[in-house]
Nucleic acid binder design. Structure first.
Length: 226
DNA sequence: CACCAGGCAAGTA
DNA sequence: TACTTGCATGGT
């Protein structure tokens, strides 16, 4: 039904895992830190996000109540290393206001909902789009939701697995309609795609003609080039 | 110097 | 629906 995607995707997963090993995502101490990191990492290098999170930790404000009290301007200065600091401070405040206003700031209460309702709520927050919402669902709420990002498009397109410019929902369905809803699998798979993308699948490929000699020689992924 | 990073919202056609 | 633009720091 899926045009043999189930087998292809699992072969891709096995090859990536063999090449890169377990990624141990999400690098955070608790679900709330995951959610903050998910907003801060929007179009931003993770190393810069780490500095911002360190600033929040060292200031002792990495919790809902403290962030709720804090002035947006003050917050923006703490997260400055993550870039887009004015808009991200507002986005974090929007999210905090949502959690406090609707769940009394109780994350357990927030997470005690069906996945589709959780996603709907997250997407209602200005500053949380589909990728950020799905990252929170997968890595904070630990739901079997597949996270799609720019690397997912790039890698699958360059390997001839999808048309260019398919929608987020279509790409997500490609994975979720062809794989068992396995939270641990989705966790590792997305993290591996990011790692592989960083390593071999830049926006402007240095090698001539991806789908890549790189993948084939270094990863044994000629199975994807048809 | 140019390019990129674990996106999103708002505006336009 | 399908583009375009603004947002911004820090590494390579």
């Amino acid at each position: 039904m899926g045009g043999g995607y189930s087998e292809k995707l699992m072969e891709m997963y096995q090859a990536l895992f063999k090449r890169f090993g377990p990624q141990h995502w999400w690098p955070a101490d608790d679900p709330f830190e995951v959610m903050v990191g998910a907003v801060l990492t929007q179009n931003t290098n993770w190393a810069n996000v780490e500095r911002a999170i360190q600033n929040l930790k060292q200031s002792g404000v990495l919790d809902i109540e403290r962030l709720h009290q804090m002035d947006t301007k003050e917050l923006s200065l703490l997260i400055k290393p993550a870039g887009y600091y004015n808009i991200k401070a507002k986005r974090l405040k929007n999210f905090i206001e949502f959690l406090v206003g609707r769940y009394g700031g109780d994350l357990e209460a927030f997470f005690a909902q069906e996945t589709s309702l959780l996603r709907e709520g997250l997407l209602s927050v200005k500053g949380i789009g589909r990728e950020t919402a799905d990252s929170i669902l997968l890595y904070a709420a630990r739901r079997p939701v597949f996270v799609v990002d720019a690397y997912t498009y790039r890698i699958l397109f360059r390997h001839g697995m999808v048309e260019e410019h398919i929608s987020y929902d279509e790409m997500q369905a490609l994975f979720m309609d062809n794989l068992e809803p396995d939270e641990a699998l989705f966790n590792e798979f997305h993290a591996l795609i990011v790692q592989a993308g960083k390593t071999y699948c830049r926006p402007k490929p240095k090698c001539e003609g991806c789908p890549l000699e790189h993948w084939e020689s270094e990863m044994g992924l000629n199975i994807y080039t048809e």
